[in-house]
Design a protein around this nucleic acid. Structure first.
Lengths: 160, 160
DNA sequence: CACTTATTATTACTAACTCACAATAAGGCT
DNA sequence: AGCCTTATTGTGAGTTAGTAATAATAAGTG
């Protein structure tokens, strides 16, 4: 296996945050790294490939803790469970296909902090902003094609 | 009561969307209008003030349908149930206090569509963006003060 | 290697919805 | 004004995505 370097890097980061280095945490971190934008359940499945006795609850605990430490980033697209990724600290954003749920990373558009300085209304009490999550919602190319061509299968149409 | 005009406006909008005008829908719309940024449960409670026999499931159905029609807007802050508001079509955003959950509206910062043109990575498949939800997360003034002063109680409180 | 305590597993339990279907009532028709 | 069709709502059960409490285990220190 060629993931010794990764293992060591994660181990060091864990120690730097005062956490013990356990195989569960390493398995979760590796799983998130290999499957970015994944929900807890998928991370559990992926991590079990190398650590079959891992439990779902441990994954929730580990994900929550590592997210608090900012070793992982968590975001919650509409109509989706929370997703996790290892790419932290660069203030990037996400585009989600409302049809198939596919997620793409999007770098910051305008310089460094796109909308980090909100425009407060006169009557609003301003807050100290820490992060600005931008969630683009749209339709990916494949779903767009699939919607146009075949009016055939149950294509989920609502508006009448 | 002086909400006849509101009632009529909502009724007209419902008809325009091919929906029947029911007291349940009117009660839900009025409740959302009076309590913006509220979850389904609070909307149910508020709507029951004028329509006590309304059920939770009806509120979910109505909220979902009106959201699909874009008569309501729905957003899902982290660690919170979905919130609803009647302010639609103006592409405004939201700031959420991570400590107390308070929500403030934020108008679009840069002109009309702040980050509506994402910066696609070379290897990403671009999507057709429909909306960009910007979720500012920070700490409101009151929570900031509360955190500084009392090193006294285990103030590990969540909003409840 | 023993020992302390962080970490994980086990077992409930909950919140926030969703679904299937029966009951009701809006709005068109006569 | 009353009937009738079918959209809408109510009822009750089920699901998903978690949280909470506590017992068992193992990481890292001495």
């Amino acid at each position: 296996m060629e993931h010794f370097d990764g293992q060591e890097a994660w181990a060091a980061a864990l120690r730097a945050h005062g956490r013990r280095v356990t195989k569960q945490r390493l398995a979760v971190l590796a799983a998130v790294e290999r499957h970015p934008h994944s929900p807890a359940e998928s991370i559990l499945a992926a991590a079990r490939a190398e650590l079959p006795e891992l439990t779902a609850q441990s994954v929730y605990v580990v994900l929550g803790d590592l997210t608090d430490l900012h070793m992982l980033r968590r975001f919650e697209p509409p109509h989706s469970p929370a997703l996790y990724e290892t790419r932290v600290g660069d203030n990037h954003h996400h585009a989600i296909c409302v049809s198939c749920g596919r997620v793409e990373d999007v770098d910051c558009a305008v310089g460094h902090a796109p909308c980090l300085t909100p425009h407060w209304n006169p009557d609003a009490k301003p807050m100290t902003i820490q992060i600005a999550d931008v969630m683009y919602q749209g339709i990916c190319q494949e779903c767009q094609q699939a919607q146009q061509l075949p009016p055939h299968s149950p294509s989920q149409e609502k508006e009448k």
